[in-house]
């Protein structure tokens, strides 16, 4: 099957500054992919390239096998919820549904209406009067009711309170479960993604630091704690992502596909948050480290 998002050497420059550089990435279909990184890491740039709001300065990107926003057909296949979930303040909720129905040939009005009803939104209410959570839900409704094969969301929950955040992610997952769509979702908070993602991309300093299936990534990364030791003396198969030392003790996060037998180490599982933080820190210090891909 074609990758939902396939980027090769992708880069975007704004005047002098590269917002995204040398991005090579292939997200398999059927995943909920989380795109994490600090603010300004290039997440929005990557997603805007994917929906065709930006054109690349370097490299290529294809989404569901097609050039982003090249045709109405391509636009119909991708749903997008932009950052801060913009809606037309002067238009009512019903107007927004009307807009979706008229501009999307594949519009699922049953889905849209039932979502609005379920959310308890008043169709006559102007979007400008909705709360942040309600507005995000309205934007999500517009994006899902066009029945896209791929749904792209740019920090959809960033401005929401914890409850609205949970509800939003819940309704996102309901849609994914019911309609077998792929999702790419960005956030600067790992906690948002931990519950929903099965694929992870870490973006820092305009580069992809890590990309792969969450299960694989968690299975191949370990935290080792033991007597102080130089990271260079580790076996060849163990790649050090992060190391910290006290006088007597070393703590390292390593990546290896082989089991760790050295009895001197206490081996711990990493959480997704630990993993992301390790790569974000590595990206911030090394800056220009090459992108890593999971070997499968």
């Amino acid at each position: 099957m074609t990758a939902v998002l396939d980027a090769s050497g992708l880069g975007k420059r704004y005047r002098r500054r590269w917002a995204l550089s040398d991005c090579t990435l292939s997200i398999p279909p059927g995943r909920v992919a989380g795109l994490v990184g600090p603010n300004g890491a290039g997440k929005t740039t990557l997603l805007h390239l994917a929906v065709g709001l930006l054109t690349p300065t370097a490299g290529t990107i294809t989404v569901l096998g097609g050039r982003p926003a090249a045709s109405p057909q391509q636009l119909a296949r991708v749903g997008f919820v932009a950052q801060e979930t913009p809606t037309y303040a002067a238009l009512s909720v019903a107007d927004h549904l009307q807009l979706g129905a008229r501009l999307n040939p594949g519009w699922d009005s049953k889905l849209a209406d039932s979502r609005i009803e379920q959310l308890g939104l008043d169709p006559g209410q102007r979007a400008g009067k909705l709360s942040g959570g309600q507005r995000a839900q309205l934007a999500l409704t517009l994006a899902v009711a066009k029945r896209p094969e791929l749904l792209i969301l740019d920090e959809p929950v960033a401005s929401l309170d914890p409850l609205a955040r949970r509800e939003f992610l819940q309704s996102l997952m309901e849609f994914v479960a019911g309609h077998e769509a792929s999702v790419v979702l960005s956030s600067h908070l790992v906690a948002d993604l931990e519950r929903v993602c099965d694929y992870l991309i870490v973006l820092a300093a305009a580069r992809v630091q890590l990309a792969g299936e969450v299960d694989d990534l968690l299975a191949t990364h370990h935290r080792l704690t033991g007597p102080r030791r130089d990271p260079a003396t580790l076996p060849a198969g163990q790649q050090v992502i992060e190391a910290s030392h006290t006088d007597r003790q070393s703590t390292m996060i390593v990546r290896t596909s082989e089991p760790i037998h050295d009895p001197a180490w206490t081996v711990e599982q990493l959480s997704m948050e630990d993993l992301v933080l390790a790569y974000m820190a590595a990206g911030a210090t090394v800056g220009r480290r090459p992108a890593l891909e999971v070997q499968r």
Binding site: V51, G52, L53, A69, S71, P72, Q73, L75, A76, V78, G79, F80, A82, Q83, E84, P86, T87, Y88, A89, L99, G100, L103, N104, P105, G106, A139, L142, A143, K146
Partner: peptide, 17 residues
């Protein structure tokens, strides 16, 4: 300014149209 172009241009209609 309102960011609504990002909504409008992701409906199934090209921005030229």
């Amino acid at each position: 300014e309102a960011g609504t172009l990002r909504l409008a241009w992701n409906q199934s209609i090209t921005r030229t149209r």
